[in-house]
Amino acid sequence: MRNGYVFQLDELDNTRRIDGTLTDEAKTPRSRAAQRNAGKPDRLPTDDGGHFIANRFNGPSDAFNHFAQDASANRGAYRVLEQEWADALAQRKTVKVTIIPNYPEGSRRPSQLKIFYSIDGVRHQRTIDNSYKPKAKDQ
């Protein structure tokens, strides 16, 4: 457990599951090194160093809370989801999350995140694709 969140790791030190109740009390500084190194050696040039639990929710700065995240997913669907959580917390609602990354065999970079969360007991589920999507000019 770190910062109130339970992280389960596998034999490759990949984070396999995260459980916890979000807080809006950020106490942990960012780790730029952990963000830069997230997912190596499988990190792609188009990736960001994403957080499973963002700093604004008091996510830990440890490497196991970081992953190679497709930049468009990080700045799109994941950001929208995190804002939904932040808005709920601002309304004094309880937000509980379970995040399950799926990794291709032997990879340090998840291809997908299954996210189960509840806001004041109302359950939701999202799947965020983290696979590489070449841009038209890359093809």
Rank of each mutant, 00 (worst) to 15 (best):
H51T: 08
Y78E: 01
Y78H: 05
N65V: 04
A26N: 09
N14L: 09
R30A: 03
A34N: 14
P60E: 03
G49Q: 05
A34S: 12
R56C: 11
K137D: 12
S111G: 13
F52K: 06
N55L: 08
Q112H: 10
M1K: 09
Q139M: 11
G106M: 08
R32G: 03
A86E: 15
Y5D: 07
R108L: 06
H51N: 12
K40P: 00
T21E: 13
Q69N: 09
A33P: 01
P29I: 11
S31D: 05
A88M: 13
F7A: 02
D129C: 04
D19M: 12
P110I: 00
Y132E: 07
T98E: 09
R92G: 08
R36M: 10
E84R: 14
Q91G: 05
A86R: 15
F57K: 07
N130L: 11
D70C: 05
R36N: 14
S72C: 12
P29N: 11
T28A: 10
K96F: 01
S31A: 04
F116E: 15
H66Y: 11
D47Y: 06
R43N: 05
G50I: 03
K133G: 00
G39F: 03
F7S: 02
Q69R: 03
P134R: 02
G4D: 09
R30E: 02
R32D: 04
H66L: 04
V6W: 11
T94N: 10
K135E: 10
R126E: 15
R43V: 03
R16A: 08
I128L: 12
A71D: 13
S72M: 13
